[in-house]
């Protein structure tokens, strides 16, 4: 069993510890964090033999499942001094090392190419609608005037496509906005949505298993910067919503997803999914056994190996 993530992914520690407690062989690698050793050969239609770092190696032919979380992007060999040459090497590493990994015909949680496809917010909203989920009215525009014309007096919010800010340790929050105060030129494609009233819900899906909590404790639209104030409570997912989420997961061929909803007694509204989103904070505060579910799924592959056509991106 292979886990591809960096050393600061503390949530992954939960998974590693669980697998170790089960007596399951697990190899945790971060190919972009330092020199790796790769000697993969193509035999019988599959990449085999060694990938490793200075501490451990794995025989790619023996891997039955991969948990892909937050690997460090390939930086290029540290001994290459000239930036352009190192950048070239980094691109070759990304194509070669990650390319070999991504071609493994195994169970993926999640395959990075599938996660990348699912990570598009505009695409998510279309897919969510097609799968039967409610979504907020949304505009993506470079024009403040277009937002004013679309908003028509409604309460609206701005949400960044990538919450990473321009500065370290900064994030761009989802925020209520007054369209009348927007500049005519927004300087970048910007997403605005009608604000939907209700309780925020984080639904973590592992395969077909739902793990849902309400998030209370703040009146802020974006609860992420104020997590020390939050309370998490388990909530059941309405059957129609769960069926729609299952369809969504199948559409993107995902094994895992962190969904955000706004819930009322009458309806749940889909906001977004993060196919590689964190879940440790939900498990620790709610007691929901998400780690165990992920490990169960990874271990299922040992009993029922995935067929060779499961690999993507080849």
């Amino acid at each position: 069993m292979l886990i591809i993530t960096d050393a600061t992914d503390y949530t992954a520690d939960l998974i590693v510890a669980d697998l170790q407690a089960r007596g399951v062989g697990v190899t945790r690698l971060d190919p972009g964090s330092g020199p790796v050793h790769l000697a993969a050969t193509l035999a019988r239609g599959r990449w085999r033999n060694g990938l490793g770092d200075e501490h451990r190696a794995v025989d790619l032919g023996e891997v039955v499942s991969v948990l892909w979380r937050w690997p460090t992007p390939a930086p290029g060999h540290p001994s290459i001094e000239r930036p352009a040459r190192r950048a070239w090497a980094a691109r070759e590493d990304a194509a070669g090392i990650f390319g070999v990994l991504k071609a493994l015909p195994v169970l993926w949680i999640n395959h990075p190419d599938l996660a990348a496809a699912a990570n598009s917010k505009p695409g998510q909203l279309v897919t969510a609608t097609e799968c039967g989920l409610n979504v907020p009215d949304t505009i993506v525009t470079t024009s403040g005037e277009a937002v004013r014309a679309w908003a028509c007096g409604r309460d609206v919010l701005f949400k960044a496509f990538h919450a990473q800010g321009a500065d370290d340790d900064a994030m761009v929050t989802a925020s209520r906005v007054d369209p009348d105060e927007l500049p005519d030129e927004l300087g970048a494609a910007s997403l605005f949505q009608e604000i939907v009233s209700g309780v925020p819900v984080r639904l973590t899906m592992v395969g077909t298993q739902p793990f849902a909590v309400t998030i209370t404790g703040t009146a802020d639209l974006d609860w992420r910067p104020v997590q020390h104030r939050l309370t998490f409570a388990r909530i059941d997912v309405p059957p129609d919503v769960l069926r729609a989420v299952h369809r969504f997961m199948l559409r993107y061929r995902l094994e895992y997803g962190a969904f955000d909803f706004i819930a009322t007694d009458d309806a749940w509204t889909f906001l977004e999914i993060n196919p590689t989103g964190m879940y440790g904070f939900v498990e620790i505060r709610s007691g929901l056994r998400i780690t165990a579910a992920i490990c169960d799924r990874l271990c299922e592959a040992m009993q029922s190996p995935v067929s060779s056509d499961a690999g993507v991106g080849r």
């Binding site: 960044a160 929050t173 992420r224 993060n274 590689t276 989103g277």
Partner: peptide, 18 residues
């Protein structure tokens, strides 16, 4: 330290090609 943030170091690292 297992919170969720919208930063490349916390939630969206795969956005940059990892």
């Amino acid at each position: 330290f297992t919170v969720t943030w919208g930063t490349t170091d916390r939630d969206n690292k795969t956005d940059n090609g990892g």
